[in-house]
């Protein structure tokens, strides 16, 4: 899935770094059989996301290529790969750790960013709605207690997660701005050209 430069030097550092993390030790046992990918529903249907290939890339140390790849997030976290692996590689856990590293450099999909926004605002990923609350009443279901938004905010700050997400949002805004400016510049050029032509 990663497009490679012509000559690749095997870099053992990334795997050393990764295998220090919990559950990642057994990554080295992978013999590249593809039992994981042959099962992975996400690979089967998306064709762009291949868990075995990620392990292969880790084994040869293609750190940047892996972490910058947005397809990482295609994993449905069904853990089937872990159960399939004949070598006891806890693949879904490892992939999760890899996504943690990717997140640190801003590789987080937008739907998760909005999920976090929801969480920080309402304390829940799927927030309540008044229509549903009316339905609850009809069912005679108990009223829902308030979500502990403050505590969640404090914790998220404490772990540094909020910062990470904020950085990501800023990054995105900066990118947006860049795109806008580029577009403006292009418009300007076009107008200039028009006037010139005229």
């Amino acid at each position: 899935m990663v497009t490679r430069s012509k000559h690749i030097k095997i870099n053992h550092e990334f795997i050393r770094e990764l295998t220090k993390l919990p559950e990642c030790e057994n990554l080295k046992n992978c013999y590249q059989c593809g039992a994981c990918s042959s099962y992975c529903p996400s690979f089967k249907y998306s064709k762009v996301y291949n868990p075995r290939k990620i392990v292969q890339d880790v084994l040869v140390g293609l750190k940047d290529e892996i972490l910058e790849n947005t397809n990482l997030w295609f994993c449905g976290v069904c853990h089937a790969c872990t159960e399939q692996c004949p070598q006891g590689v806890e693949l879904s856990e490892i992939l999760s750790h890899i996504r943690n590293l990717a997140s640190k450099i801003g590789n987080i999909p937008t739907h998760l960013v909005s999920e976090v926004k929801n969480l920080l605002e309402t304390g829940q990923v799927v927030p309540p709605s008044s229509a549903i609350n009316r339905r609850r009443e009809k069912f005679g279901l108990p009223e829902l207690p308030d979500a502990p938004v403050d505590e969640i905010r404090t914790l998220v700050k404490s772990t540094g997660f909020e910062d990470m997400i904020r950085r990501k949002i800023e990054l995105e805004k900066a990118k947006e701005r860049e795109i806008m400016e580029e577009a403006k510049a292009r418009m300007k050029k076009m107008e200039e050209k028009k006037t010139e032509d005229a």
């Binding site: 590249q32 059989c33 593809g34 039992a35 994981c36 990918s37 042959s38 099962y39 690979f43 089967k44 291949n50 075995r52 399939q84 004949p86």
Partner: peptide
């Protein structure tokens, strides 16, 4: 590649082997 699943296709009566060509 190590196949993960063998299923069948009811209509064609073929067996389907799912495998990644690694």
């Amino acid at each position: 590649g190590k196949p993960s699943y063998v299923v069948d296709d009811q209509r064609t009566e073929k067996i389907l082997v799912e495998v990644e060509n690694t």
